[in-house]
């Protein structure tokens, strides 16, 4: 076990951690922006949009993230018209491809989470808001969405960890994320496992921090749903 080599190359892992966090959280943010309107549209069964969104969700949830990434990174280069378009500056860059694949993937999972949360909003809450004279838009913005997002919190916490773990495939298309750093260390010094073990520990540490953060958020925002002992 060569701990010294891991410690000597700490910068490799520091920049890898930055890359992983950056990709994960940007993808989660973009995914969320996709998922909020999509999830509500699905819950309301908006004609035309709803089945299309359903197709998107089914495709991205039913297939491996790795293949989605390959399809975008390796697949799109097949078409000359893409290679000649302005979009090629982004699509030939592994970082952008990873971000696009991760965002679409997270968007699909988050759509389902938000759909479920919107569908389970108690009718009474919305009726009460209407009775107070709020317009339909106000009901959505001030009552439905905050209430649904609170209840989506536990599942969304799972999705955040899932995205963090899913982001390891970025290292396969040469990106230097945490696992990429581990692989570089191993190949540089002919090591068998030290780099992977360090990567595993880093992923575990980030997972625990995220779980703690979401536990705190749940305690704060789901306080009103907790069973009180009287």
């Amino acid at each position: 076990m060569r701990v010294d080599l891991v410690l000597e190359n700490w910068q490799l892992f520091a920049s890898g951690t930055w890359m992983t966090l950056q990709l994960t959280f940007l993808a989660l943010a973009i995914g969320f922006v996709i998922a909020l309107p999509f999830g509500i549209a699905r819950a309301r069964r908006v004609p035309i949009a709803s089945p299309l969104i359903n197709g998107y969700v089914y495709l991205f949830r039913g297939t491996p993230l790795l293949v989605q990434l390959f399809l975008i990174y390796y697949g799109l280069s097949q078409f000359d018209w893409i290679r000649e378009s302005w979009a090629w500056t982004f699509l030939r860059d592994p970082w952008w491809c990873a971000l696009i694949a991760f965002s679409l993937n997270s968007g699909a999972y988050a759509t389902e989470i938000i759909r479920g949360a919107v569908e389970t909003t108690p009718r009474g809450e919305l009726e009460a808001a209407g009775a107070l004279g709020l317009s339909p838009f106000q009901v959505d913005a001030l009552v439905l969405i905050p209430s649904a997002l609170r209840r989506a919190l536990p599942q969304y916490g799972n999705e955040v960890v899932f995205m963090l773990h899913g982001s390891v495939v970025a290292s396969i298309i040469t990106l230097q994320d945490i696992l990429g750093a581990g692989r570089t260390l191993n190949s540089k010094f002919y090591l068998a496992y030290e780099g992977f073990l360090t990567a595993a520990l880093l992923y575990m540490a980030i997972t625990f921090v995220l779980v703690m953060v979401f536990r705190g958020l749940e305690r704060r925002y789901l306080r009103h749903l907790r069973v009180s002992r009287t």
């Binding site: 963090l164 899913g166 390891v168 595993a200 575990m204």
Partner: peptide, 9 residues
């Protein structure tokens, strides 16, 4: 805590 690919490698 550990992603599948890391454990596999």
């Amino acid at each position: 805590g550990i992603p599948d690919l890391v454990l596999l490698l």
